[in-house]
């Protein structure tokens, strides 16, 4: 099926099988490999991307469902500088080790900070509870998100 959508600000037209989910489409067709596939059934959060402004599980949306939609991936948020401070905080706090969960973790963390500029540590943990990290034990990730929230609040 032919689909046309906006990916990181660029209009993309492609021919996809209906069964192709959005992250396979991004990775295989567009070579945007920042969005990762872990469990492929909506549990791990490694595939978290933005669709029409809201974060979604990229493995639980078909590419054909995104026809006419606006998709933003970690590559888009990274290139635009939208999350540069969050990325710097992740590095400073050692909030990643293998890095597999990191793109999804950054997408989820940025979603939280856009909706709640001054989250508590408890709220940070709650919001990223759908993103699994098997390396860090989360403490450093929560530190990095909290640090970024405080930095942004000070910069206001």
């Amino acid at each position: 099926m032919n689909i046309t959508l906006t990916v990181n600000g660029e209009t993309v037209t492609a021919d996809v099988l209906p069964r192709t989910h959005l992250v396979d489409f991004l990775r295989e067709h567009l070579e945007l490999t920042g969005s990762h596939l872990g469990c492929e059934h909506g549990v791990c959060g490694a595939c978290t991307i933005r669709l029409d402004g809201a974060i979604v599980r990229g493995c639980l949306v078909l590419a054909v469902q995104a026809d006419g939609g606006v998709v933003e991936t970690i590559e888009g948020l990274s290139d635009s500088g939208e999350i540069a401070d969050l990325q710097a905080a992740f590095i400073a706090r050692n909030a990643l080790q293998c890095g597999f969960c990191t793109p999804g973790m950054l997408m989820a963390a940025q979603d939280l900070l856009l909706h709640n500029a001054t989250p508590t540590r408890e709220e940070i943990r709650e919001h990223i509870s759908g993103n699994y990290c098997r390396c860090t034990g989360y403490q450093a990730i929560v530190d990095a998100v909290e640090t970024t929230a405080k930095q942004r609040a000070r910069a206001q």
Binding site: G42, G45, T48, L51, A54, I55, V56, R57, L60, V61, A108, D111, L112, H127, S129, G130, N131
Partner: peptide, 9 residues
């Protein structure tokens, strides 16, 4: 119900 990225859909 699940998580924000699922509640959005």
């Amino acid at each position: 119900v699940a998580h924000a990225a699922i509640r959005s859909r």
